[in-house]
Design a protein around this nucleic acid. Structure first.
Lengths: 209, 209
DNA sequence: CGTTCAGTTGAAGGCATTCAACGTCGGTGG
DNA sequence: CCACCGACGTTGAATGCCTTCAACTGAACG
């Protein structure tokens, strides 16, 4: 009833239109939800981190591709078992609604980013989101070393930019002393206030979380 | 337990952060869900048409503004009554999940539009969406007269463009004979195939719905 | 040591924006 | 009745941000 599957970086987990014969939760790793136009332009419409969930009650298919970014481990459940569990347990059903609403809020925040933010604001917002996520996941030091799980190309596809623009904006934040990279995939936020200001969002009274 | 409220065009229905003391369904009219940055840049993250629903089980507040675009009539229910109805009726609960998932899919489609489509593709996709919606609502003639419920500014805020660009692209589609306007707010699609092609989406085998 | 691929950097170009002016329509009041 | 006004929409010209194209760097790997 419960099985584990692992995927290597870059490996497709599910294709658009695939039958969802199981539901799953991400044990470890990062995956993307992506949509593509005829001519190859791609937009990442969501990220999956540890403990995130794949599967939609009552839906057989998905309308996007799911791809492993890092090594990903999934914990999979047979769909019928899951459906009946949801149907019979109001508490679980409640949880499913909340998850869908959370994702909806996240998607709408991202719509604001994609439609109205500048390249610099997009990058700052993205970095800020990574900080929040990894803070939740337990990295809590004053200026902890964070990981950048995506390549420049994936970041570009998540933010509606090109790789070159992503590279330039990250370099610019480095030069300004807002970020510090030890390695291409690990960094620290040296100036959280400046980062928050660069997001373009409400300043939240200057409070730094 | 059930009350009706009407709003005039432009009137705010709910502000971001407002307590949701009731849930409601749209009886008639069109409303927008909008998000705004500090400096006034605005992004419309969703539209409400007839029979759409306002309210999120388990959530007290909303994170966006809801504004009447046309005259809007809402049918409002007290929140506690609704919550207990959802909790006690699995069928209703199921419906709520499906609505949330539908909105999520729509939001993700729009993310692809905002992040990766050109101005022309955005306008074509928007018009195509209006056609689909009004088709569902009963306008089914071969080339029915459709209404454009939003102003140019609202369209711009929905598509992540400026009013000028919206105007130019609509004019261009008119000149090409794809659209025909009788009045600034009513139009017909003269060339559905060309419209579909202009959306940039998969051609769906050339089938025109 | 050569190859490859992710990332960076520079220069040129283009699409959408910005700025500005004009046109159109509906409502209001003289 | 019509002149005036304001909101909405259109059109033109110039600017700019991001993209495109191209070349280069550097680390990983056989």
């Amino acid at each position: 009833m419960k099985t584990y599957r692992t995927y290597t970086p870059g490996e497709p987990i599910l294709w658009r239109g695939d039958k969802l014969n199981y539901v799953a939760s991400v044990v470890q790793g990062v995956a993307t939800l992506g949509k593509t136009l005829e001519d190859g332009r791609t937009q990442i419409v969501g990220l999956l981190f540890g403990s995130d969930f794949i599967g939609r009650p009552g839906r057989e298919e998905i309308d996007f591709d799911i791809t492993a970014v890092t090594e990903v481990t999934l914990c999979c459940f047979q769909r019928p078992a899951f459906e009946s569990l949801v149907a019979s347990t109001p508490h679980i059903s409640e949880q499913v609604v909340q998850m869908a609403l959370d994702e909806l809020d996240a998607a709408r925040d991202w719509m604001l980013l994609l439609g109205r933010k500048t390249a610099r604001e997009k990058i700052a917002t993205f970095i800020d989101m990574l900080v929040q996520r990894q803070h939740i996941e337990g990295l809590r030091g004053p200026k902890p070393k964070l990981s950048l799980p995506l390549t420049r190309e994936e970041i570009a596809n998540y933010l509606g930019l090109t790789v070159e623009t992503v590279s330039r904006q990250i370099t610019s934040l480095k030069k300004e002393g807002v970020l510090e990279f030890s390695d291409r995939r690990s960094f620290r936020v040296k100036d959280m206030r400046a980062l928050k200001e660069a997001t373009g969002d409400d300043s939240e009274g200057g409070l730094i979380i």
